[in-house]
Structure formats: C-alpha cells, structure tokens
Design a protein around this nucleic acid. Structure first.
Lengths: 339, 339
DNA sequence: CTGAAAGCGCTTACAG
DNA sequence: CTGAAAGCGCTTACAG
C-alpha cells in the first residue's frame, strides 16, 4: 500500500462503474447524463476527493478557462482595485486570473505575455496600448483575444475598457487655470515607455496652450512613481529661476512625494505652491493637505474589461464594444485659488 | 491554406528533420544533444516562433514549475512588496507565480488553494497558519509543498518565513509605555479569521499586563482594514468614559484612518492622543503626523519564502529551515512623550 | 443516455 | 547521441 495518489478520472470511473466519458460528461454537461448516474458520480467524486487535473483538461479541450493580466506594477495601489474587480467578474463566470507584472518594461511585458500564453491563458488583459513590435506580432499571429485597459481610445481596432487620459489631464489643468494659476509645472511619469504618462503630459500641454499667452507651462519633469522621485522632481522644479504657483502631477504618489518634500523644505502647500494628483488612491486622502486629484474609475474599468474579454472569448464576435469611462476631478485642499 | 496554427513540437521536429524526442531534449537537456543538432533545432524554433505548450509539458513531466500564492488582499500595499520579492526570486529559478486572494475568508482560501493546485501549482505560499480543517486535510493528503509567511513560529512542523507578531506588538507597546502612556487602547484587525491580528492583540495585552497596575489596556476594538473603519473605531474609543492617551493600531491603514478622523473631530494627534501603526507601508510616511510604526521585513520575507519553497521543491528534504525575521519600531511623530 | 477509442502536446525510460 | 513508443489525465465526435 502506497501513498493514496491523487485520484484521476479513471479512478472515479471504476468506483462508479461507468466509463470515463460519462464521468467527464457528468461534470461538464450534467444535462446529458441521467439523473441517477449524475448522483452516483457526484457521490464517488466526493468520497474520493476528486479534482479534475487542469493540464489534462486543457490539453483535451483546448480551452483553459484562464485569463492573464499583465500590469506595470503591483507596488502601489494604482492597479489594485481595478484588478480585483476584474478578477471578481472573471470568477463569477468560472474563469481564473493569472497575474504578472512588467515593471513598465516592454520587453519584460513580452516575456510575461508569452509565459501567460504558454500557461494556457485563453485571453489577456493589458494596460495601455504601447508595446513592442514583437509583442504586437505575437498577439496578432496567435490571434489572442485581448482587452486593453487604463488607456485611451485607439485608432487601431483594439478592444478596450479605459478612459481618456488626455481629456482627464485637460480637465484637471482647466481646474488649475480656473483657480487663477498662470505659472504651471508638471511632474509626470516616465513617458518613454508609458502611454498613459505621455497622454497626461499632452493633456496638460494642450490645455495650457489653449490659454494663449496668459498661462505658461514652465517645465515638465519626469519621475518614476515613488515618493522619493516625486520629491526630487519637486526640488528640481523649485530650484528653477521662474517658479510655478501650481504643479500638476501625473500620479498621486508623485504628488505626495512633492508635498512631503515641500514640508521638509519649509515650502507651504498650497500657500506657496499648489499640487494636484492623478488616480485618487488612498494616499490622496491621507496626505495633508488632502489632494485635489483625478478619480480614475478603477473598479468599473476592471469589471468592464472582464465583461468585454469574456464576450470575446465566448462568442468569437464581441457583443460588447469598447468603452470609455468617465473620470472626474475631486476637489480637496492641495489646490488654492490664486489671489 | 489556413490560419498558421501555433506550431507544436512535431512541427519543429519535421522542420529540423529529427524526432520530437530530440527537440524535447534539446530544449530541456541540451547537454544530452550534439552541438550541431542543438544549433539546428534552435534555428528552427526561432524561425517557427515555437513556444512549448504548458499543459502538454505539465501532463508529461508531472511538474509545472509553477507556484501559487494566496494572500488575504491585494487592496492595500500590505503584501505587495513581499509578493513582488517572492515573485522575483521564483523567476530567477525559472518558476512562475500564480496569485489569488481570499479576502480574509478561510473558505475562500480553500477554494483558491484547490484552484491553484488544479492549475498544477507544484507548491504554495500561504499567509499565516490559521485555516479550516478541510484546507489542512487537503494540503496534507496531497502532500503539497507549502511555505507560510507573515506569521509566527508554529508549534506544528510547518515550514515558514515570517516574523514574530506577538513580539513585534510587545515591542511597540513597550515603546508606547516608555513614552509615559498609561491609558492605552487598541484598534486591531478582525481577529476571528486572522492570526496575525490576534497575535498583535496578544502582544499588546501581554506587554501592558507586565506593567502591572500602572498601565491599563482600556479597550480593544476590531475593524476591517480600511481608513473608514479605522476612523469609526477611533470615534468609538474616544466616546468611552475613560479616554486613552495612546492608541496602538494593528495596521497602518487603521492608524491613518484614526488620525484622519481625529483631524475631522478637532482632536490633536499626538497632542491629545498618540497613535501608532504596524507594517510601515508608504502611507505611514505620508500621513501628518508621520506614523510611528513597526517595520515588517516584507521583501526579505518574500525572498526567504521563495528560497525555502524552492528548496522544498527541488530536494524533497528542505535544505533551508524556517526563519524568523526581525522587525523594528520606526519612531516618527505620531507618538508623543506624556508629560 | 452511455461506451470505446482517438487525440490533445509533451517527456522519458528503453534500445540502439 | 538519437528514435520509436508509451503514457500523462482529460474531452469529444462517433456509434449504438
């Protein structure tokens, strides 16, 4: 007598006195099996503690009911609740989520995508639409069902559930200008490999430009998403000869880093300089002064992304089109009216 | 002519003019294949864009080189960097990480564990050691290699990479007492399903008790880990007839929630009441006053957990034993000395 | 409603 | 160093 090996379909079939085909049907298409048999099979399954083996199932059916997501980072809350909502919706429909992160590196993203597909992911959720040619070719050659999130509408025919980063950045800029600020600076995410970051920069540029000569975007400094880097960028901006009265940040972490550094340097926010954020994660309410920022509809986006991907997976032709969710500016205390 | 289906081992074999066995060996054990063949195979693989099919591989080899982790939540940064470090270490060794979350619900944890095992996970990383009997039985019957993290040493023979929650809570309590506080309250995580939360409560109890009659733990109120709930707990505590001069919180989010609510109520922190946290996530530096808290060695723990799980997977007998990592109190400004 | 059998894409003794 | 072949645990036409 040996270790009771984990039972297989065949063990169940023997114990129930039917064929493996019947067991398989009883599990996956119970309506095609007689009630009696169904019941007996169910009992044996419970008695044996049988769990279908995923690899066998996947290999035979050519479907894994698994979906992959690759996000830039798990290190801050930026994607957390959107991903959670995505997962919840998948679970409802019997799918499992595989998560990977790329660290904002497009080659790493390609690696992770390949891994996810090897793992048998039926479809993918990706952030933004900027990626390497190798990645795009791979996705296209394999015809991998994909939904994009966190990003803008795209001229290409990709399916996405996102929001308009440019418009959102314009909106917060409009708000800043409406508060009487004319000397603006921006602390942005690293735009080279991050289309959301560059679109937010674009939004700020476009909107300040609209104001003609009355408003100026003095400088845009890019920083990785950390408190430290946000602080450094702040210092760099404040050392410049012409100082801004308002700094628009591409992300809440950056904005908090700026405010923290201001505190250290004895610079008042928003007394001397106003600061705004983007995302509206927890940290935005916690910082003092509380951050005026852009609320990104994370949960709605995650859910919408799941629904679209699933409709793509089930019907080959998606019943749900791309969607652009609304953002909105949350006014708190880090943006002051300029007298 | 059809869609160029994703190539299989057999396609590669044909194109290279060798058997599938040779291709398989060339990929997995190149030393057992002649250099010439290896090179030719490599070329064909690149030309065809061949990627091994995970399910086939897993089924044949009975190993997935995949590891699962189930964490209570992805919603705050509490586990994020530990998980990231865990993943990084796995990747170095050619393993892939599957992540699931349980929402602090033990039945959900069981579900997620089963799913991960079905998915073919070779081993598991779990948080804490409290779980249902069904889960324990399942893990044991299948002899699933498992490493525990975030938790205390355990009387049972489980392998873990954690820290002593009781001792850490005692240490921060000692610090609070050393600052002259005698009227203490605690805002704790929900202890029913969370052994870390209950151990932190225990630490606070034990340490205040040590001080005999000179110090009192007035009350312990439990709250889910959110700013809102932390705030509510704070209000509840401050409404009691005897008010504390210091509130020890089981988590940074709770502590920040308390401070935020204090601000709204016009109660000074730490002037009127001191507040301490636990974890030392970003938010702890961002809140004003900056949080005195306990630094949890997230990254070190994640890495140590990966190393231990991998050693368990490779050698059946682990070369690395359980480890208890040090925590330390970070003194910032939310804890004042009582005159 | 049920079963026998082929096949999904790989790996791995076993021979040579 | 290489190949033929069995087998991993399932699903699914195809018959009946």
């Amino acid at each position: 007598m040996n270790v009771p090996d984990t039972p297989t379909l065949e063990d169940v079939a023997k114990a129930a006195g039917v064929s493996t085909a019947t067991i398989s049907r009883s599990i996956n298409h119970p309506d095609k099996v007689s009630p009696d048999t169904n019941e007996r099979v169910q009992q044996v399954i419970n008695a044996l503690g049988y769990t279908p083996h995923f690899a066998g199932k996947t290999l035979a059916s050519k479907r894994s009911r698994t979906v992959g997501a690759v996000i830039p980072t798990m290190a801050n809350a930026m994607f957390a609740s959107g991903l959670q909502a995505f997962q919840e919706e998948l679970n409802v429909q019997g799918y499992t989520l595989l998560v990977a992160s790329s660290g904002y590196d497009h080659d790493a993203e390609y690696e992770q995508i390949r891994k996810l597909i090897m793992q048998g992911a039926d479809g993918l959720m990706l952030i933004g639409h900027q990626r390497t040619k190798a990645t795009r070719d791979f996705l296209q050659a394999r015809r991998i069902p994909t939904v994009l999130a966190w990003c803008n509408p795209d001229e290409r025919d990709a399916l996405y559930a996102g929001f308009d980063n440019v418009a959102a950045a314009q909106e917060i800029t409009r708000e800043v200008l409406a508060h009487g600020h004319t000397h603006i600076a921006m602390i942005a995410g690293v735009s080279g490999s991050n289309d959301r970051a560059s679109q937010r920069i674009e939004g700020v540029r476009v909107e300040t430009a609209k104001h003609g000569v009355s408003a100026r975007l003095l400088s845009v400094v890019e920083a990785v998403y950390s408190l430290e880097a946000g602080g450094d960028a702040f210092e760099q901006i404040m050392r410049q000869s012409t100082q801004p009265t308002a700094i628009i940040c591409g992300n809440d972490v950056l904005a908090c880093g700026a405010i923290l550094r201001a505190r250290q340097l004895g610079i008042e926010v928003p007394g001397t300089v106003s600061v705004t954020g983007f995302d509206d994660i927890d940290i935005a309410q916690v910082i003092e002064p509380a951050l005026t920022t852009v609320k990104v509809p994370q949960r709605a986006m995650g859910k919408a992304a799941a629904e679209r991907l699933l409709s793509l997976l089930d019907d080959q032709i998606p019943t749900l089109g791309s969607i652009n969710l609304p953002t909105r500016v949350i006014l708190r205390h880090s943006l002051a009216t300029l007298k």
